[in-house]
Design a protein around this nucleic acid. Sequence first.
DNA 1: GTCTATAGATAGATAGAC
DNA 2: GTCTATCTATCTATAGAC
Lengths: 208, 208
Amino acid sequence: MSMVETKTRILDAAEGLFARQGYLGTSLRQVTGEAGANLAAVHYHFGSKETLLQSVLERRLLPLGAEREAELNRLLVRMESGEVVEVETVLEAFIGPTMRLCESSARGAEFSLLVGRILADPGGPGQEMFAELVGPNIELLLRALQAVLPDLDSELLLWRVHFCLGAMSHSLCLGHLPGFQGLVPQSVDTQTVLGRLIPFLTSGLEAP
Amino acid sequence: MSMVETKTRILDAAEGLFARQGYLGTSLRQVTGEAGANLAAVHYHFGSKETLLQSVLERRLLPLGAEREAELNRLLVRMESGEVVEVETVLEAFIGPTMRLCESSARGAEFSLLVGRILADPGGPGQEMFAELVGPNIELLLRALQAVLPDLDSELLLWRVHFCLGAMSHSLCLGHLPGFQGLVPQSVDTQTVLGRLIPFLTSGLEAP
DNA sequence: GTCTATAGATAGATAGAC
DNA sequence: GTCTATCTATCTATAGAC
């Protein structure tokens, strides 16, 4: 039994298990088992399994969203004052916080896998929570990219942003993909991924 | 009760339900309910829930894989004879069969959603089946792209192909994403998606 | 706050009649 | 091949002692 309080241990265990096995693939008994807590403690602290997921998401996404919002707003202000900003810079403002979270700890990296799962689970629990937590960030990203690429049709831009989100979430899951014998890249450290993802997405966004 | 045999009705129902609700989110009772069949019929025809998923995947992916293999091999032969082939052409050979399946019927479109789910479910059932069914296609895609982009480092190419797969699978799920108030593109017909995806991916692959 | 014990519902799988 | 009936296991959730 660790020194941190039960509530935090449950959050940590749920985050890892939801990420590795999915929300439906994880039972609350597994969570309490890994957390060294009791089944009833989950309902006492969080109310239900779904509310537990909400808490897991909010713990990471609220600060992450604030960081992204600050960075993107800073860029928007600079652009309004006439300064020229590159597409790469905008993308980095959006992806950077996520990548730094991945680097900061093994838990952070697992969390990004959970986000990837939720993105690919239409209608599932977490999708609505995610939309509410990250939607404003995506709107800001769209505004910033539109300002950098003023000649790009806005609906085409929207599509391309979704292509970017797909590439992002998929590559964040890659380190965990088994079975693709030799078809998964060796180096999966986030610095390398970011260094390869940003140029790819930039060229895609700037396509004619 | 329809005219088609029970086995096919079960396959159809399972395909749609697995796609809309996920594998774990779907019970065999839901499948038999929608198929107008009995619970025991699933075990008689398919053995288990997991084998049912395998059959669902194989029914579409075996012909799809053969089509992709034929198209990509045709391109490789043309390139070996010295002919110049564009990146767009290689991508279309890989994505085209999937897109045509999506257009052919509502069931085909749902199937692509199921594939997107499986791609984002590391360690889940279906991941290994998918790798075995589609892995050879991805190897062919890599060979064809490497031939078209000989100066690109092979591991960088591998990463970029994974970015492409992520963008593909995510955009195939998009029509079903609720909740992203106004953040989801209007037109989701596959022709439009293909027309916007291919240039995006081509520019990304050709990035410096 | 944390525990035991259990309720109540539902899951996949199977046996055996027809 | 298709059905009913049932087994066994597991799930979320809750009531109540401490």
